[in-house]
Design a protein around this nucleic acid. Structure first.
Lengths: 341, 341
DNA sequence: GTTAGCACTCGACGCATTGGAGTGCTAACG
DNA sequence: CGTTAGCACTCCAATGCGTCGAGTGCTAAC
């Protein structure tokens, strides 16, 4: 579809624009080593590329900038995945050498390091509990009326709630219930827990324990509620570094969106495995129509557990970011499997 | 020190400036109902107030703006604590009516609601474990080599770590140790846990259990490590609403600081109980020399546990914010005591 | 097919002009 | 003596204008 020369020119324009954030003229392309044609020739090709919708002109006498479609072509056909630089590899080594003793720690830290290494904004989705299995369930009484319910997953993930013990339920009842739950639910994936709870356990429990409906509904809530993964955000202020957001209002729109967890979840919805690149309006949210989002999933035990992502201007260093996300997501998976070997 | 009229004028100027963000002229003060003197008279007083260092002039032919010292005087002597508005009270009612089942939930939610109600940035310090006591300690084995250590405080606060079980330590040893710990440490405040662990428990443990040094040092780490409270931030983007930060660079400096948890902790250092107002350069960090920070501590059982705070421009609605923080901090305390009654 | 040359476009930048808000001072007033 | 009207002065902010230069599209020559 595109001639070799057109591809080179397109590539050169996008590279330049990514670096400079300013419309690229025919002259500056011609002066680069890699495309040795005169400005006039390049202008002709540029006009063609514009007709195809790959380039745009902010105004008549300005250079060209890539369109969404242009970036898409670049990402699909042109971008060079250079791998991760030595410096970055070292940073990551240090990162993974640090002592990590909580899931949340790893994931949160990963977000920080991502934003620092890229100077973009990173968004990381913590592990989903959906596909993990229940390891242990426990109630720790705090006082007469309340207790802490603790749920441990096979991945080492821990969730907890403070619950109020229903009237008329004795400590003994609770203990019995908890024991039964551990017996029956250990090893059950969380997405099945609810049904098992109602089908198998409810009946049996009703033999030993009074008020078991109260207890069950309480536990039901406790276990199913809020299994939504946590969202970690880092480097939102990096957005302000980008010249495209020198206008405070634009910056504000984006930062406001970033503060809403719901919105972020929505961004990550079409969550197929592997690396995904969403450019500009390809994203579902209008607020980031001038941004690109690159995501990668990390997995444990073959199951994709969560997502790491980078949000930046459409004029983003795609090659670098894609390489990095790929590398890091695999490293996280590896770290986790080493942890739970 | 100040005449009644000077105080009225100072008050009027600051009120106006807080509303408009623009230097206040003598004419506009004179036209307000509350100070019925001619502009000329007011100009004289303004000159005096400037000499005293309470007002400043951006340039010769502009109106006056309050200086840090001026704001200080305003906060100390003039500001009217109007209490919390009806609308706000209702919002808070709704907030506290919502079902809360985790400490983190309450505190995080409090941050959100604060920033929404004020349109400033809110910073909330989660509960310190330092003064709470240990309720329960537990190890849940995940696989052959690792286990999750869970610590529950009397407040219902839960901390957890994944730990790697030292070589040569049997599950039985671990269980014995955990049992002993629960026996001896239940009810002990966290700031004493470390010393009790080494003085009382170490000896006794060495009788039953092999490799007890390994286990102890591991537990020591686990328990003492990271008792730093969590920091919750909300509404950072509200900073961009303020005209003083229409310049992206200034905004960036502040937002960058807000992303560093360490910095935020430093802000909250001089943490005496009750409400504190730090205006402009009274803050330790240069980055927020044009901001004011208002903080209030919330407590449980007489012990101050954490801090809620609002960060805004020095030109901040002090009266409203102080009232609100006072109200909310007391409400949180009340909610907690009701929870654990 | 490629390139040099040229007229044209259009935003960015610098500069002078103007308008108005606000001051400080002085003199008059009660 | 405190208060106020009047006035000259200051200085920012907004506006308009001319210039500059980067870049284009087109045409004609190579």
């Amino acid at each position: 579809m595109l001639s070799e020369r057109q591809r080179m020119i397109l590539n050169a324009i996008i590279d330049d624009y990514i670096r400079s954030a300013e419309p690229v003229g025919s002259r500056s392309i011609s002066k680069r080593g890699d495309v040795s044609f005169s400005p006039a020739t390049i202008r002709n090709e540029m006009a063609d590329l514009e007709e195809m919708g790959l380039l745009e002109q902010p105004h008549t006498s300005a250079g060209r900038i890539p369109s969404i479609k242009g970036y898409r072509y670049y990402v699909d056909h042109l971008v060079k995945l250079g791998g991760v630089g030595d410096q970055d590899v070292r940073t990551l080594r240090t990162f993974f050498a640090e002592k990590m003793n909580r899931w949340e720690g790893i994931v949160e830290h990963a977000a920080t390091i991502l934003s620092q290494m890229t100077n973009y904004t990173s968004i990381v989705l913590g592990p989903e509990m959906f596909h993990t299995t229940l390891k242990h369930f426990q109630l720790v009484p705090i006082n007469d009326v309340s207790a802490v319910a603790i749920i441990v997953a096979n991945t080492g993930h821990v969730e907890h709630r403070t619950i109020t013990i229903p009237d008329g339920v004795s400590m003994d009842d609770m203990t019995k219930t908890v024991n039964l739950l551990n017996e029956r639910l250990a090893g059950v994936p969380f997405y099945k827990v609810k049904s098992v709870l109602h089908s198998e356990i409810a009946k049996e429990l009703s033999r030993y324990v009074e008020h078991c409906e109260d207890i069950l509904s309480l536990l039901d809530q406790t276990i199913t509620e809020e299994q939504e993964p946590k969202v970690y955000l880092s480097g939102a202020s990096n957005m302000l570094t980008q010249p495209e957001f020198k206008d405070v209002d634009k910056a504000k729109t984006i930062l406001e969106m970033l503060e809403e967890t719901q919105m972020l979840m929505q961004l990550f919805q079409s969550n197929s495995d592997g690396i995904q690149v969403k450019i500009g309006t390809e994203n579902s949210l209008e607020a980031i129509n001038h941004c690109s989002l690159i995501t990668a999933t990390y997995s444990f035990d073959g199951q994709s557990l969560g997502t790491i992502g980078i949000l930046g201007p459409t004029r983003m260093e795609y090659g670098k970011v894609i390489s990095l996300l790929d590398y890091l997501s695999k490293d996280i998976a590896q770290l986790m499997s080493r942890w739970h070997k």
